[in-house]
Nucleic acid binder design. Structure first.
Lengths: 215, 215
DNA sequence: AGATTATTCGGACCGTGGTCCGGTTAGTTT
DNA sequence: AAACTAACCGGACCACGGTCCGAATAATCT
């Protein structure tokens, strides 16, 4: 039902899955493995829609997909891996938008404008899928290794370099990214009741200050 | 043994413990309750020293303190609450330093200098207790409600107001704080191998840019 | 096709966080 | 001091994440 999830790849080959968004096809998975992977993603997706991402249990996913529990863990490593796999699907929309979409976010606009547009784009994307993004928040040591974050980081570094800002580019990129971290954004918009536009203005403000020569 | 931990307060009175660092003494706890609380903190502290904060199990704490498991949870709410209680003890050193310590961190220096000194102070404090700070990282929805963070935030807001920066002060304070978040700092210094001095320079840079008029 | 081998399957099993409730004990009232 | 009440104590109990290994199955070789 709702045929949509169908990615392959992201297999558990090396010591750590790491769930890269990048490709790196591990040589063809067995037919039943692929089938089960699809069944599991489909079931998980349905359960998330029904009960909310935070209530998703691995047992339930296994049962719903009519598959043994061990299979779920072999396919996705752990609960977090499953959520991340689910998220990858959504994340791709955003990635396409800033990698190859239309300006000012995508290529074609000057780097500074792309940078200005980046924050609001991410903010809007995240806020529209809060439950999933929050539930997919991993344990502390994996939080910064997730593929999605690496890609965003790399993109920011690239833009900052292209602009030629007079700062520690790598560090600045990390800190800009920290502003967009889903839990923080959630806290600011929901708990502290800051409207999204306010966060966007904040992003613009910081970027503008970054572009200024420092003297 | 190593008599050090002895705070009272932080009792589970309302619907949510929240483990404020502030005082708000709930009316006298019963004698045995206080005694057990102390025993538990002492045992937990010892176990952390022995096995590392991340390996601390509630069962072990209960056993080591010769107390029922239920008692541990009633006293501290959950595992995270216990870790936070343990951390409060450490956190106080830092709090005293910027609330009432000597300049430039404490009162007496101009606000801008205090702000400049704040980042490095927090960075050094956290990095010297990584294991505990990381283990005490709570579930996503509680991460921003913890007393320690609230106090830091309030302090930053106060300084920024006093300086009279031309920005959204509350938001800026939140984002400055995001730079000092332990998991991020850990990632940058350990995984990305950035020396502490580099993070400190980064802090100074951002603060300086914040002080600049924006034009 | 039949044999061989690498991989996958699945559910029993375990550890740990967290809950619950009957029995007990500390304050309080008379 | 005795009775009373509210709070506390403790360990049995549950749910969920994660592991493990014998059985089953797909791909490969002869």
């Amino acid at each position: 039902m709702s045929g949509g999830i169908s990615d392959t790849g992201g297999e558990r080959g090396g010591p750590i899955p790491v769930a890269l968004t990048s490709v790196e096809e591990a040589r063809a998975p067995r037919a039943d493995a692929a089938r089960n992977r699809a069944k599991l993603l489909e079931a998980a997706s349905r359960l998330v829609a029904e009960c909310g991402a935070s209530n998703l249990t691995m047992d339930a996913v296994a049962a719903a997909a009519q598959v043994g529990k061990g299979t779920v863990f072999r396919r996705f490593g752990d609960r977090n891996g499953l959520l991340v796999a689910l998220l990858d699907h959504e994340e791709k929309y955003l990635q396409e938008a800033f990698l190859s979409g239309p300006p000012p976010l995508g290529p074609g606009a000057p780097a500074a404008e792309r940078l200005l547009a980046f924050g609001p784009a991410v903010l809007r994307h995240e806020t529209s899928r809060f439950d999933l993004y929050l539930a997919a928040e991993g344990p502390v040591e994996r939080r910064f290794v997730v593929g999605a974050r690496r890609l965003r980081l790399q993109h920011l570094v690239m833009l900052l370099r292209e602009i030629g800002v007079d700062t520690d580019v790598e560090l600045a990129a990390e800190c800009l990214l920290a502003r967009l971290d889903t839990p923080l954004v959630h806290h600011l918009t929901v708990r502290r009741e800051m409207p999204l536009e306010r966060l966007e203005r904040g992003w613009h403000d910081q970027v503008r200050r970054l572009l200024l020569p420092t003297w």
